[in-house]
Design a protein around this nucleic acid. Structure first.
Lengths: 148, 148
DNA sequence: ATTGCTGCAAACCTTTTGCAAGAAT
DNA sequence: ATTCTTGCAAAAGGTTTGCAGCAAT
């Protein structure tokens, strides 16, 4: 739930422990996630996986990600209308999504704590801290816009 | 940008002023938005519009909403993976989306001001106040979950 | 008479699903 | 041997687009 240091073997063990089987695709996928530690779409993850397992299909990546998500190893966020991004579960954090360049910026969830509390107190609403996403424009894009 | 009292005729005038033409579908759509003042999907808006203009198609509703959005009269938000919801631009506000029942709760944007400032100061990121959406579970759903 | 708008159908994208063959245990 | 998984292809949403005809101005 809050491992900052996921290791490939630990994840593969978790898969086996829960009755899952470790396939070439899953191993490549897990390594991609551990290596990049980035927010990746299924499309880009599939490309990376295919370097090692050329036959891998997006649908398998979807299914594998779902399995990892059920194990609490992976989380995903929907940012705008675009494809969802997946990454290793880690310290809970929020996302800033630039609607201009698509970049994702991670921000500590501490930033959101005041809101999480307010919203719980005033609206009886439990915020899902894993899916905090806010859209806007990053500094780079703001500046390029002004110079155009 | 912050009209709390959009009137149908004002909106139709705005359409004409900018070179647009007022059609039966547009009029029905505008009335639906003004009447319900709710957050509606294209699907539900189309149903309402079709009460008056039976031939109206979703694609036209999409195009009309885009036009209204360009005029600053309508805004939309993406909440999760589901269909986007549209509503009249009004006092800027955030959305709480219940991932269990799909309900949308409006919250005053004042709640988000601290974050908007922090994020601008620390991450050089301009939050789009029109698209603030936070997912979680509303009180009703939390309680039904506990009773099941 | 312009030329913006429409409905329809088809295209698009992301994601999900059915299925028979293949592989990890 | 089991039974999980896979790739493929097709389906399923939500949204966009091309087009020829229609209609608001």
């Amino acid at each position: 739930m809050n491992e900052t240091t996921w290791r490939v073997d630990d994840i593969l063990d978790a898969i086996r422990t829960t009755g899952g089987r470790v396939t070439a695709t899953k191993r490549a996928l897990v390594e991609a996630l551990v290596d990049t530690r980035d927010h990746l779409t299924v499309e880009s993850l599939t490309s990376v996986v295919q370097l090692r397992a050329p036959e891998a299909s997006p649908s398998t990546v979807y299914r594998n990600l779902e399995e990892l998500e059920n194990l609490g190893i992976v989380v995903h966020s929907h940012l705008g209308r675009a494809a969802a991004v997946y990454h290793l579960a880690g310290p809970v954090h929020g996302h800033l999504l630039c609607s201009s360049c698509g970049r994702t910026i991670e921000v500590p969830s501490a930033l959101f704590e005041p809101i999480v509390h307010e919203v719980r107190a005033q609206y009886d609403f439990d915020v899902d801290r894993h899916h905090l996403a806010i859209s806007g424009v990053c500094g780079d894009c703001r500046r390029s816009a002004h110079n155009s």
